[in-house]
Design a protein around this nucleic acid. Structure first.
Lengths: 345, 345
DNA sequence: CTGAAAGCGCTAACAC
DNA sequence: GTGTTAGCGCTTTCAG
């Protein structure tokens, strides 16, 4: 089983009494002009020697690596976050179908300072880059503006930088969530938000508030709290929110994680969800199914986002496309964390 | 910003009036014999042209790729599973420190049939391979036995194949869980297991039962159920278990996922956790903190497993080590899903 | 101290 | 139909 000395195309040529060219042609199916006798001989030799072309040599020659990199922020256990995980799974599937391999890149501070993200292309590590979890503070992404590198922002967009992106319609998400709560009769509504530097987070919040406002519902300043994009943050925010404003009957959270945290925080404060307080999340990730109660949330089609993003980055690389800005529709997933407000019951 | 024509070492040589050799020597710090004047000139040229060496060419020449691949099973949304995620995060950290890049490989059925996993090495895609979520049915891993490829089984071991591995002590885990339940006074204990083809799952279960037995507690056949390694499976198993044996006071689950599912199933059946039934999990992943009640579970040091596995695979690749079989100790994490049995309260 | 030249393994013009 | 040859971009003997 051991393979000390790898077999090269040269060995195949020798074994089959053919030239390098012939072997190469046969292997790459450009063998219209090769006699079937020779082809057979070559194929037999390939089989006998167990030859497989060295990819490094192929890539060097072809001037492309066949790799796509996924860039994620430097967070503790990023890959354990189902949000990134779902996106990565979807991207992997699409990349695999297209014959590409996936490279994992974490935006370690050092790497960014040394512009390693640009080197990824310069050094021919990758043909394309998919950026997950980007924020408005990621100035380094500016290095890609105007470059001819195939880069795409996945499920976000950066207003300050004109970069390609594929994302969900978070404005629509805000509207749907607001309308759901309005329909249920809620008037005293609070909001737990994620980081303001995430553009889609702002989009979501703005459109949510705007839709509320258009139905005559105002959200005072003290009805909003930062959930830090974590369960713990969501729990703390919910507890504090209800302590300050006991008449709140519904909470919208910027993502499922914070919503699940909020439910925990509420229960902890002796309140029942949804009887006392309704909670709505956003993302519709797996955990929202197993929260107690199961979470009513906005479904964002992350699978499709991942697929499209991957397809798009390849189109960019191949020069088939110049710019990409796709926005995918979202929908409301009704589960059991919402009901009418306690007053009118 | 656009870089149509990448700059090569040749350009640097020309710009600095030096030879290829000289430039290469300077860049690789093998410049003991280069005059500092020349060095300066070269460095200046490098800077001016923004030269970065092409990694494909370097790798081709060095006969190593600088990549490590992570092989995961083909499950729906694998990467969204926090178990794999934590492992991947840990591996990424270690790989990054060692200057290696990570490749994602999913064991798609087709790829396995075509022996793509072996090609990973033959084609020089990677220098080493880390296998996550392997099972006793993964015959293809046999292709690596006796080969000189750097392969390591992460957090598992395959008795049928002598392969390198780094894992947690699941036998100890079984003992700790059993002792915890025994100490609390439980006598009527059930077990929700994952797939039997996962060796560590069998280890865990066997040692759990053995420890119980040594304290005179028998677990009848009908006190065990398959949780399919999923939340839904855990929920169904728990419900069925208590329907058949209403006097069960504690349940051990093969992992956190099934434990969390079990809690949901129990609640759904109108039982309270831990008052009516105690539940113990295994893994201590993030979600166990936010379950309701927070889960008492066996802490498996996945971070360390990932780190060690990565270090080990590199040691194997560099020939510094021949065989690796590490087993890391686990511990009990006490939270609120367990208490004494209802009878003796 | 520096450079010419060979070679890593492959592909593709361009002969023959 | 098939083979020769020149690279892809880099490192590394080996001369000078």
């Amino acid at each position: 089983m051991a393979k000390r000395k790898p077999v090269s195309i040269r060995d195949v040529a020798r074994e089959s009494n053919a030239s390098l060219t012939t072997v190469s042609l046969v292997l790459n199916k450009r063998d219209g002009r090769i006699s079937s006798a020779t082809r057979e001989r070559v194929l037999k030799a390939v089989d006998k020697l167990g030859y497989v072309p060295n990819r490094l040599a192929q890539s060097l020659q072809a001037q492309k690596s066949g790799f796509l990199a996924i860039l994620v922020p430097e967070l503790r256990h990023v890959f354990a976050d189902p949000y990134f995980g779902e996106l990565i799974s979807a991207i992997e599937e699409a990349a695999n179908e297209a014959g590409y391999k996936l490279l994992l890149e974490v935006a370690h501070k050092q790497d960014i300072e040394q512009k390693r993200h640009v080197e990824l292309f310069q050094r021919r590590f990758v043909d394309g880059l998919l950026c997950l979890g980007s924020t408005n503070r990621d100035d380094f992404l500016g290095d890609f503006v105007g470059s001819d590198n195939a880069v795409i922002i996945v499920n976000n967009h950066l207003p300050a930088l004109s970069l390609n992106s594929v994302m969900c319609d978070y404005r629509q998400a805000g509207v749907l969530a607001a309308e759901h709560l309005i329909d249920l009769g809620h008037k005293d509504i609070a909001y737990i938000h994620g980081a303001a530097e995430v553009q889609t987070a702002s989009d979501l919040r703005e459109s949510f508030e705007a839709r509320l406002a258009s139905s005559g519902i105002k959200m005072p300043k003290n009805h909003a709290a930062d959930g830090l994009y974590t369960e713990a943050g969501g729990a703390a925010a919910a507890a504090q929110l209800l302590k300050t404003n006991p008449n709140i009957t519904a909470i919208m959270a910027g993502n499922d994680k914070m919503a699940i945290g909020a439910i925990a925080g509420l229960k902890n404060a002796g309140l029942s969800v949804p009887k006392d307080v309704s909670v709505v999340g956003c993302d519709d990730l797996q955990p929202s199914l197993y929260s107690d109660p199961p979470l009513t949330t906005i479904h964002t089609p992350l699978d499709e986002v991942g697929h499209r993003a991957c397809t798009a980055v390849l189109a960019l690389f191949e020069g088939k496309q110049e710019h990409v800005t796709e926005t995918l529709p979202v929908s409301l997933t009704l589960r059991n964390s919402t009901c009418g407000p306690r007053k009118i019951r």
